[in-house]
Write a protein that binds this DNA or RNA. Structure first.
Lengths: 252, 252
DNA sequence: AATGTTCGTGCATTATCGTGCAATTTCATG
DNA sequence: CATGAAATTGCACGATAATGCACGAACATT
């Protein structure tokens, strides 16, 4: 294995798990602990991680915190959420994805709105418990810790037994050529199923996701009929998507 | 677990709850009290917290973070949760009910415990997202708003496909003659199914529930093999249950 | 004042670290 | 193809960090 690949693996593991242990890495990668230590030292010197006794931590503290007590979400995301909430009509059935943007959506729902929300995110569901008029359907399955949503065969089966009017989708990348993408395979499968079961899909993303590509492709960008983005998105970013026939709305 | 992470955990807990106790932390984190004391000493020397006998307090006067989370429930329930957490062995599969008592249970889980938790409560599931070693299986279904758990045919079917070692149950009434009872029919059905699918059922309740009866009966009191109650429960309350062969534990 | 808990210190043990060094591989250059 | 420089890796060894235990002191509670 190439040195560079090894370092990349270390960084990936770090981002995914929030920490790495030298001993574990040496076993995983089949090299001596000395080599791992050297790698960690160099990566630390380059400033991309923080060296500690026994392993390493991310350089920027607390990137891994999707625990429901989400970090104070920006005003931009709140605007996104309010815009999305306005799209829901009474008595509709909608899918709501997990994530910070969609959490803002459910927080922005009018208290008198009667509708059904289907979600595979316990955080979204927990937030809706206090809503007086929304009926909630929870999709079960194995909980995928990284993004905090249910995945797996059980979740897929449950989704395929429901049809919804609208799906409020969140992704980590949308690109006119490479489509919608996310960081995990299972999550991509779930999102794909949700798109298929919804009459219409609305994508909610912050500006930094537009034009990006993540490892696992969900579907073509045209699977989205409407795109809600924060107002800092540039025309250069969204024009290729608008050309595909997607209705782009800047929220402000 | 890395030392620095442990210290971060201490600080997080401190910010969330407004105080930390050395003994509790040592159990949660799976290290000796000496190590915790050392951590607290060093954090205090760094000025980020204030050392007190038995634990520590925030350095800056108490800006407790109550974002969304339930007000810190009574110490009694926390004790109940810790006692229940100790009953879970590594690699077990356990059902965890919804409710404030069981929420204390998942909060008291040692961070290094590897086990599977199956729950139909989005609040429990959301809390466990941040736990590094617990695998979570979410039971889907319609969300019953009053108690915030999934109910209905889908939930029942999902439960019946799983067998667990232990079920941590919460109810609104337990009585030697009238058995276990709760305030909703659908919820009662779900609890009954969970009892059937678990090798052992542990009931967690506060003193005010012991000897009470609610409208919908779940099962006979003997369905419970162990009863964890708060220490304010009187012998008059629990003796009839103990006579049925239930192991009663007062938590203090 | 009595008792049990918590604390701090010293010490032993273990894991981890950094450095120097030698063996091996990679690679550019003659 | 040959060769030497640079890079990479593993090992040895002394240094450092982290942890748990023991014991007497400090503290809280009654």
């Amino acid at each position: 294995m190439l040195t560079k690949q090894r370092k990349q693996h270390i960084l990936n593991t770090l981002q995914q798990q929030g920490n790495v242990v030298a001993k574990t890495l040496s076993q995983e990668l089949g090299v001596s602990e000395d080599t791992i230590r050297r790698d960690l030292r160099e990566l630390a010197k380059a400033g991309v991680l923080q060296r500690v006794h026994g392993g390493a931590l991310p350089a920027s503290p607390a990137v891994v915190d999707l625990t429901g007590r989400q970090q104070l979400s920006s005003d931009e995301k709140a605007l996104l959420g309010r815009a999305a909430a306005r799209l829901i009509e009474p008595d509709q059935v909608v899918f709501v994805d997990g994530g910070t943007s969609t959490l803002q959506l459910v927080r922005a729902l009018p208290v008198d709105l009667r509708a059904t929300i289907v979600t595979h995110s316990p955080v979204i569901a927990a937030e809706l418990i206090s809503h007086p008029a929304i009926q909630v359907v929870l999709i079960g399955g194995q909980l995928f810790k990284h993004s905090g949503v249910a995945v797996g065969a059980a979740a897929l089966a449950a989704i395929r037994s429901i049809r919804a009017d609208t799906y409020f989708l969140g992704v980590t990348g949308i690109h006119a050529d490479y489509g919608l993408s996310t960081g995990d395979l299972e999550e991509a499968q779930i999102k794909r199923a949700l798109i298929e079961q919804a009459a219409e899909t609305v994508l909610m993303v912050t500006a930094d996701k537009v034009g990006k590509v993540s490892p696992y492709v969900i579907a073509s960008a045209t699977a989205v009929s409407q795109l809600l983005v924060t107002h800092s998105t540039t025309p250069a970013q969204y024009q290729p998507l608008a050309d595909l026939g997607i209705a782009v709305s800047l929220c402000e």
